[in-house]
Amino acid sequence: MVLFGALINALLIIIGSLIGRLLKGIPENMKQTVMYAIGIVVIVMGVQMGLESSNFVIIIICIVLGAVVGEWIDIDKWINRLGQMIELKFGSKKQDGSIAQGFVTSTLIFVIGAMGVLGALNSGLQNDHDLLVSKGIIDGFTAVILSATLGIGVILSSIPVVVYQGAIALLATQITRLVPEAALEMFLQEMTAAGGIMIIGIGTNLLGLTKIRVANLLPCLVFVGIVVAIIF
């Protein structure tokens, strides 16, 4: 089953989120300390990813262009509006934390990165789901902490995860047929680096140091693909 890995990844996020809600009664001081710890770890992860780039000029250009397009479209506003609509529907903002914040933050953490793309390609080409299952285990544990601190909105991140990984898995044959191996490798490398920079932004937001609209940087991943295509 081509979609097995993507579905398992999403299921583990759901399970982790539900477990995290069982821990929502932990003291506020502990929640705050855990949130800061997550922020620090996320920043370190982002730095590690960011250093994957072989050409930082590409990353700078793509980040700037992505920010311009992202702010013009205002992706952050639309994603937050979706979360707020769900908040109003379930009336859970005061009791369980901001659904919008949990949804946006966790979606960016779980979606950005090469592991999901590579895992989805393996699922589609070789019916090998090990990488996505491994990612799912990591995401599940992360979802426990995020859900305990940011609220039940974290569970909604399972939807974009299964959609984008599933789409890549289904289109894997066409992707590898149309894109040269060297170009795909370069794209994954630079995409990881660009994603790392966005991950750093998420980390500083979690620490309360910044209020970066990280979702508005997402178009930079498209520009990475365009630049790689021009190079090849």
Rank of each mutant, 00 (worst) to 15 (best):
A229K: 05
I155P: 04
I60Q: 09
K94Q: 15
L3N: 05
G208R: 01
E185C: 06
S53P: 00
Q95T: 14
K211C: 10
G46H: 04
S92F: 12
L188N: 02
L171G: 08
G166M: 02
G153L: 01
V224I: 08
V104F: 08
G91K: 07
G91Y: 07
H129G: 04
E28T: 14
G136Q: 08
E71G: 10
L188K: 02
I109L: 14
V2Q: 12
L82C: 13
I226K: 01
G16R: 02
N216P: 07
I15T: 07
Y36E: 13
S106L: 02
V64I: 15
G203P: 03
I99G: 01
A37V: 13
L188G: 01
L18F: 14
S157A: 04
C220T: 14
Q126E: 14
I13R: 05
A183C: 02
V41Q: 10
I175A: 00
K89Y: 07
I137R: 01
G225A: 00
T149H: 08
A172E: 00
L171H: 05
D130I: 14
N9L: 11
F90S: 01
V224A: 00
I73Q: 10
L22Y: 12
A114R: 12
V154P: 05
Q48F: 09
L11I: 14
I26P: 11
P160C: 03
G119F: 05
V214S: 09
I14D: 06
A143M: 07
L125P: 04
L170H: 06
I75P: 07
K135R: 12
I168V: 00
T142F: 12
D74S: 10
T210P: 00
A6P: 03
L121M: 04
I152C: 04
G83Y: 03
I8R: 11
K135C: 09
S54C: 05
I152E: 01
A215K: 07
L108Y: 04
L88H: 14
M49A: 14
M85N: 15
G166N: 01
A183Y: 00
V41E: 10
N205E: 04
V44P: 09
N55E: 04
N80G: 14
L65D: 08
S17G: 15
V57T: 15
M191Y: 10
M35S: 10
K89W: 12
I26A: 13
M30D: 09
Q174Y: 12
G203Y: 00
L132K: 06
G25N: 14
S134D: 10
A114H: 07
I14S: 08
G153I: 03
E185Q: 11
G25D: 11
G140I: 02
D76V: 11
F141C: 13
E185F: 05
I8T: 11
G195K: 01
N205W: 08
M198N: 08
S123M: 06
K77F: 14
D128S: 12
R177W: 09
A67H: 12
I61E: 05
V162A: 04
L108P: 03
I99H: 03
V57P: 07
N122S: 15
